[in-house]
Design a protein around this nucleic acid. Structure first.
Length: 483
DNA sequence: TTTTGAGTTGTTCGA
DNA sequence: GTCGAACAACTCAAA
């Protein structure tokens, strides 16, 4: 019998439009699908609690898809290098196929493995599929990586169409007996005592099927109004596809194709909404482009001047932010939505991030770490690039003086306060006029609503006007130090 | 090499 | 109440 191919799954937990899987099947050799839980391999960027919950469910889904194709999924725990060596010995495989990753630790490992295995006569091939375009495929006229979104976006548009998405294989040739697999339950990816995942379970359907359903729902219900509604946390105006994309349960090429198709079918009525959504997919590409070319993006400010920024670490303020007790209803609603569902609306992410970095002067890395722990869509490229963008130290970042006013943002994007009422129930009875600024409500209004500020719900932990001035001063200080 | 136009998502202040 | 300017220059990308 021909020696098998090891198909190493990482953040590509799908069977449709999966170039490495397609190539393994096309090779005509038996395939050994494997997922390796390498807990030390990503250093400080080991998956957080919410990501681990998702991973458990997504692996269950992938395994069942592969079983339907006549195969299965081998689960192993340990350092990837060691596990792969063991599997080579057990199966006699002469090839390993993998979908390439872009985090420096992962890409570095893949390159090292490729070199080491080649010496032993083992073929190690890395495939694309995670991005529309590989980071090497896009460069300025000078041959340098892009640092500004708009020219990057135009360059992407000029490259279209990307390759068409590939169909899922109809079967995967298996060995008579797949190697032994760990029991998924033994990996303890799900939380126990306490089980905090109730909100996640009711919100999400991890896996390739859930991903497709989520995208279809978006196309049917929200795409046409995407431009108008995507900033409204009180509506279902966004796709919520981010965790599915992060785990590779759906490919961006398939998203692109489905959206384009829907626009055509719909007589172009969804054109503006669909295009705005596709632009967000290019933002994802841009984040990966940055991470690939600047590997320390997760740790260090892109603009070096921010190294000397006068941050004020403060444990009490950090905890108030994490627990949704800052006294600013929109901020608190967002932080609680995050804790309960593992996800936060994009508009609100900007507001809470701006609040942490500018109102509280807590380093963006601290906020990024909390998001990493709590988000089901925690993605090193998107998380790092976006936090840097908000903090003003990123590539093509928001100017530092652009400081969100959480009250104004609330009135603008949650005009009736429905979002706040859902996530901050202790304020639910407040009239609309005060829902985003309870500290301005007259005493009788507060008591009618059953609110005692400083009791169930706190007063503002910082004064907005003071915090704004302080942030601008800190920025001035940094600039003077740099000069 | 130099020049030129442009750059995701805001807020505040004063006319 | 509405509107435009100030906020801060700076650096990128392309001609």
């Amino acid at each position: 019998m021909k020696p098998p191919v090891i198909l190493w799954f990482q953040q590509d937990l799908r069977i449709q439009d999966h170039p490495a899987l397609s190539a393994a099947v096309a090779s005509g050799r038996p395939v050994v699908p494997v997922y390796i839980l390498d807990e030390g391999g990503s250093g400080r960027w080991a998956p957080g609690g919410a990501s681990r919950w998702w991973l458990h469910n997504s692996l269950t889904s992938l395994r069942s898809s592969l079983e339907k194709l006549g195969s299965g999924l081998v689960l192993r725990r340990g350092p990837a290098r060691k596990v792969l060596a063991t599997l080579i010995a057990e199966t006699g495989a002469e090839s390993i196929f993998v979908t390439r990753r872009y985090e420096s630790y992962a890409a570095g490992l893949e390159c090292a493995l490729a070199g080491a295995l080649r010496k032993d006569g083992i073929e190690f091939r890395r495939f694309g599929g995670t991005l529309l375009f590989e980071p090497e495929a896009l460069a300025t006229k000078d041959g340098r990586p892009y640092k500004v979104f708009t020219p990057f976006y135009k360059a992407c548009l000029a490259k279209f169409p990307a390759a068409s998405p590939a169909k899922a294989p109809s079967s995967v040739a298996a060995l008579p007996q797949l190697p032994k697999s760990d029991r998924l339950a033994d990996w303890a990816l799900l939380p126990t005592s306490p089980d905090w995942a109730g909100g996640l379970r009711t919100t999400w359907a991890p896996g390739e099927q859930g991903a497709g359903a989520r995208l279809d729902t978006f196309v049917t219900n929200a795409m046409t109004d995407y431009e108008r509604c995507r900033d409204r946390p009180d509506k279902r105006g966004t796709s919520q596809i981010s965790p599915h994309l992060h785990f590779g349960e759906i490919s961006p090429r398939l998203c692109w194709q489905k959206i384009r198709f829907a626009i055509e079918m719909n007589d172009h009525r969804g054109e503006s909404g669909g295009t705005a959504f596709l632009r967000e997919l290019i933002w994802r590409e841009f984040s990966y482009h940055l991470l690939h070319h600047w590997p320390n993006l997760p740790e260090a400010p892109f603009r070096a001047g921010f190294k000397d920024f006068p941050w004020k670490e403060n444990a009490a303020n950090l905890q108030a932010w994490q627990h949704g007790r800052t006294g600013y209803p929109l901020v608190d609603a967002g932080m609680r939505q995050l804790w309960y569902t593992g996800w936060m609306h994009n508009r609100v992410r900007m507001v809470v991030a701006s609040f942490l970095v500018k109102h509280l002067l807590i380093p963006w890395q601290v906020g990024a770490a909390w998001f990493w722990e709590t988000l089901v869509d925690a993605d090193l490229a998107n998380n790092s690039a976006s936090w840097q963008w908000v903090a003003g130290c990123g590539a093509d970042a928001a100017p530092y003086f652009r400081i969100f006013n959480p009250t104004i943002q609330g009135k603008k994007f949650d005009p009736d306060g429905a979002y706040v009422r859902q996530w901050v129930p202790e304020l639910a009875a407040l009239p609309k006029a005060f829902i985003h600024q309870p500290w301005t409500a007259p005493p009788h209004v507060l008591s009618d609503a059953g609110v005692v500020l400083g009791k169930e719900y706190p007063g503002p932990i910082v004064d907005h006007a003071m915090a704004r001035r302080r942030a601008l001063d800190a920025f001035q200080q940094m600039k003077q130090r740099t000069i």
